[in-house]
Amino acid sequence: MCPGRVEATRRCGPRSRRARFPGRVGTSRRNAYGGPKVGYAFVYTVIDDHSRVAYTEVHDDETAVTAVGFLHRAVDWFADRGVTIERVLSDNGGAYRSYLWRDNCEALSITSKFTRPYRPQTNGKVERFHRTMADGWAYARCYTSEQERRDALAGLLHQYNHHRPHTACDNQPPFSRLINVPGQYS
C-alpha cells in the first residue's frame, strides 16, 4: 500500500514555486487563524501493490488525525475486498512522522515505511495515479464548486478500479486481480 497526498488545486513538486521559495510569505497551508486555507484540497490515496486497486478520499487538511482516520477507513475498505494491509509506504510529511500515525500502524499490525526525501519516484504508483486523477477528474472539466468536484471522484475511482485497463495487470482492470473478494464466486 502506498498512501500519498496531492493538492488537487495547485501544482506542487520539486519545480513548484513553493519548493523553490520555501520561506516566502503565503506558502503556508494555513490561514491567519490556523485553519485550512480556502481552495486547497488534499487527496489521500492508498494503492494495493499487487492489484493496483486504489482507494482515495479528499480532505481539507493534512493533519495526523485526518491521516489516521483515512488509514482506518482504507484498512476496512480493503478488508471488505479480501486484501490485508501489511506495509504502508508514505511520504515524509508531518502527519506520517507523528506518534499518532506510528501508534495506529502498530495497533493495526502495519509496518510503516517512508520514501526518500525529494524522490517522488520512490512512491511512483501513487504519483502516477495522481496524474491520472488530475487528467481524468480534478482538471477534466470546470466544476461549479469544490463539492461538485469531490462528488465526481467516486465515478473516476469506479472507472479506474473496475473498467480501465492497466498495463501492470495484463491490460485488465485492477479489480480483476482480486480473486478472494467475498461473494465473488457465489
Rank of each mutant, 00 (worst) to 15 (best):
R18K: 15
P22S: 13
V25P: 06
N31F: 08
V38T: 12
F42D: 04
Y44P: 02
T45W: 12
I47S: 05
H50G: 06
S51W: 01
R52Y: 14
Y55V: 02
E57F: 10
V58R: 12
V58S: 12
H59G: 07
H59M: 10
V65E: 15
T66F: 11
G69M: 07
F70V: 06
E86M: 01
V88A: 09
N92H: 07
G94R: 15
W101V: 02
W101H: 03
D103P: 00
D103E: 07
D103S: 04
E106F: 08
A107K: 15
A107S: 14
L108F: 10
S109P: 14
G124H: 03
R128M: 04
F129H: 11
H130R: 07
R131G: 09
A134L: 10
W137P: 00
W137F: 12
A138Q: 08
C142G: 06
T144G: 08
E146G: 14
R150H: 12
R150L: 07
D151Q: 14
A154W: 14
Y160T: 01
N161V: 02
H162C: 04
H163Y: 09
H163E: 07
H166V: 05
D170A: 13
D170Y: 14
N171F: 13
F175V: 05
R177C: 05
L178D: 00
L178M: 00
